[in-house]
């Protein structure tokens, strides 16, 4: 019971935090805490096989899948914890409390018998005992789960697969498209400005500075902008750049002004 009393508060705390943290990644990590704790509880409950499965399958496989998807999807407005449906949060809280109270009160009324313990059942080892059950009493359910898993795998492939309806765009087509867009909409045909090129830092979260000293929004990733983790170029940085520019003006004036014009057009 010592294990339980140590882990139980941690688990409840972690679970509660899932409700309130803003970022999905944090939620996933908190869930990992809960799941690891659960694994330990399984171990303490004489279920070594489930302990292993909980760590390998749940924490190892499923949570990692969650993290993969999170990275694919990126960050968007859904991470906000601001409620959009009127009354939803209040009602959810009230109902949740009522539900919890009902469960707790209801379960408190139950008279629990003495604990039998699994010593007898696990006499020949937990895994062989489970295998005995799984391949005898639960054989049909077990086979049905295999069918379910295959169906799920195929289903996931079908859902995630994207059919290519048009031929793949190769370099000549891409070049032609860019020039056409430049001609029609005036979009800059060249590559976007690299982040940090004209700034003091060349990290990806630092926007490039345009010749007039303003930061170029095009030079930073959209995901970073959504997360709000862009470093601002300080006024000192701008002054530094301007000073450097004026020092090298004599040698590079014509070239840099041309490039500046082009960038103006691109915007």
């Amino acid at each position: 019971m010592t294990v339980f009393w140590i882990l139980a508060p941690i688990m409840v705390l972690a679970a509660l935090c899932i409700l309130f943290v803003r970022k999905a990644v944090h939620a996933a990590l908190l869930l990992a805490v809960v799941m690891m704790s659960l694994a330990m509880l399984y171990a303490s409950l004489d279920a070594p096989f489930l302990f292993a499965v909980q760590i390998i399958v749940y924490t190892g496989a499923i949570l990692m899948l969650f993290l993969f998807v999170l990275m694919l999807v990126g960050v968007d407005a859904s991470d906000s914890v601001v409620e959009t449906i009127r009354g939803q949060r209040l009602l959810a809280t009230v109902l949740g409390l009522v539900f919890g109270a009902t469960l707790v009160i209801g379960l408190s009324q139950v008279t629990w018998g003495t604990v039998v313990g699994l010593d007898e059942a696990n006499a020949g080892g937990n895994v062989p005992a489970l295998a005995n059950l799984l391949f005898s009493k639960y054989i049909f359910a077990f086979e049905a789960t295999s069918a379910l898993l295959i169906t799920a795998a195929v289903g996931a492939m079908v859902l995630a697969h994207r059919e290519k309806l048009t031929p793949k765009e190769k370099q000549p087509e891409a070049a032609a498209r860019r020039m056409r867009e430049y001609a029609e909409t005036g979009r800059h045909p060249g590559p976007l400005p690299a982040p940090g090129v004209f700034a003091r830092h060349n990290a990806v979260d630092t926007p490039a500075l345009l010749p007039d000293g303003s930061p170029s929004q095009e030079s930073i990733s959209r995901v970073l902008a959504a997360r709000g983790t862009i470093r601002s170029a300080s006024v000192d940085d701008v002054d530094d750049v301007q000073r450097q520019l004026s020092a090298t003006e004599s040698s590079e004036s014509s070239e840099s002004s041309d490039r500046a014009d082009e960038q103006e057009d691109g915007q």
């Binding site: 679970a15 409700l19 409620e83 949060r89 009602l91 949740g96 919890g100 469960l103």
Partner: peptide, 13 residues
């Protein structure tokens, strides 16, 4: 029961 309740509230909020 407590974890289940927290999970259900999480689904809702």
């Amino acid at each position: 029961a407590i974890l289940f309740t927290i999970g259900s509230v999480g689904v809702l909020v």
